[in-house]
Amino acid sequence: MIKVNNVSKKYGSFTALHSIDLEIGEGEFIAVLGPSGCGKTTLLKLLAGFMGPTDGTIEMDNLVLASKKRVLPPEKRNIGMVFQSFALWPHMTVAEHVKFPLNYHPNKIKENKKEMQERMNEVLKLVGLDALAERYPSELSGGQKQRVALARAIAPLPNLLLMDEPLSALDVELRMEMRKEIQKLHRETKASIVFVTHDQGEALAIADKIVVMNKGRIEQIAPPEVLYTRPETEFVATFVGKCNLVKGQWRNEQFVPAIDSKNTWPDLGVTAGFKENGIYPVRPEQFQLMSPESAGLQGVVSFVQYQGHEIHYTVEVEEATWTIHESVFSKRFETGDFVSISLKNSLVQKEILIST
């Protein structure tokens, strides 16, 4: 169990982290998600021991790793680290990269040469590099280099594995492949993982729990599905999945859009903060477009993007601009078309069933 207790970090007059509280359970996969400059890499550096907090403490299994007065250095923590840039040594083979932490990591395996070789072989097989053990980094592809970095980090069986945007240097296909590899490693090693990323799709796909950060503060901590379907703040709603924030009034658990008081929408689990501010968050796929004579809010299509399995529409509704995703099998609209907008019937019917 890792506990971050009321941790703040300042650089002169600038505060990078504001009173962060976070618990990481044994074997838990945590993704730290947020835009550039939100403080996620600073948090990772504090967990790694590259620097100390200005205030607060960081504990691992009831041992204080860092406080305002004392910081346990990285080499004395039972952690593994995977960097964005791979950080491989050009003069070492793949096998030597895996062997290095087995000799020098604080959690190193105190075994004979035969047992160490068995552990090296086990790790190389786990990441699919057993046939490339004698190659050097210059002879490897981007995906293979990332596997070496992962193998080096997990070889000494760390309690905590830290990953700083490890897939950002890879192309789209490799990123998808490496997501599966990281999930597989998590299942096999059962280590706690903190995975820093600015890619919401990545976080939603692989994490048990997501920590959304903004301007040095934690906005929300939740499992991916809860975070997506029940955002608690406007930032989370717009950063994770690009929610449309519709303004209006809440009356008796029903929402009345400000742009058309004749329409009412059911409460689909909107949090109290949105209700207090008179906002109804709607995901792009929760809206449906119909011909303008149909019942609903009226708008004009201003932009159309074909995305293979979906059509992404940008629709102007009075002074607001909404994003709406429709199936390619739905009725097609073009730029300049007048349309009617409503919640999908399946959502409304689901709410009726739940309430009854």
Rank of each mutant, 00 (worst) to 15 (best):
M116S: 12
A169D: 02
E181L: 08
V148I: 09
A133K: 14
G80I: 01
I154K: 04
E139G: 03
N159G: 13
R135I: 05
K108R: 15
A131W: 11
E118A: 14
R135A: 04
Y104F: 15
M116K: 15
Y136E: 06
M92P: 07
I193A: 04
K125I: 13
V98M: 02
E118W: 11
Q144D: 08
R119H: 04
R119K: 14
E181F: 09
R135W: 02
M92C: 10
P73H: 09
E111H: 10
P158T: 00
K113S: 15
N103T: 10
L124G: 06
E115W: 02
R147F: 00
Y104M: 14
A149Q: 01
Y104P: 08
M163H: 02
A95H: 12
S168F: 01
V94S: 06
K190V: 06
M116I: 14
L185D: 12
Q117V: 10
Q117T: 13
F195M: 07
L160N: 01
V127R: 11
L162D: 00
R175W: 05
E139R: 07
P156W: 13
D171T: 07
V196P: 04
L140D: 00
K110C: 09
A191T: 15
Q117N: 14
M116Y: 08
H186R: 12
E122V: 07
L167A: 03
R175H: 00
I154A: 08
P166N: 12
M116C: 12
A153S: 04
V127G: 00
T197V: 01
N112D: 14
I193Q: 02
V82N: 08
M81D: 04
R179M: 10
E96W: 00
D164E: 05
P158R: 14
A87P: 04
T197P: 05
W89F: 09
V196F: 09
M81C: 05
K184M: 15
K114V: 11
I193K: 08
M176Y: 10
L161T: 01
E96I: 13
D164L: 11
A191I: 08
P158A: 11
A149I: 02
S85W: 11
E165N: 06
L160R: 05
N159K: 15
M81F: 14
Q183T: 15
H91Y: 09
D130M: 10
P101K: 00
A95W: 12
A151N: 06
E111Q: 14
E134T: 13
I154V: 10
I182L: 11
K190E: 07
N112P: 03
I182K: 05
K113D: 08
D171E: 06
A151D: 06
K113W: 09
N78A: 09
I79E: 02
D171F: 05
M120V: 15
M92W: 06
H105V: 07
L88H: 03
R135N: 03
P73L: 09
G128K: 05
N121P: 01
R179A: 10
N107C: 12
L185K: 09
K145L: 04
N107L: 07
H198S: 03
E165Y: 05
L161S: 03
L124F: 06
L162P: 04
S168A: 12
L140K: 07
F83Q: 04
M92A: 11
L162A: 04
V98P: 06
A149E: 01
S141E: 02
P156G: 09
P166W: 07
Q144K: 05
L124P: 06
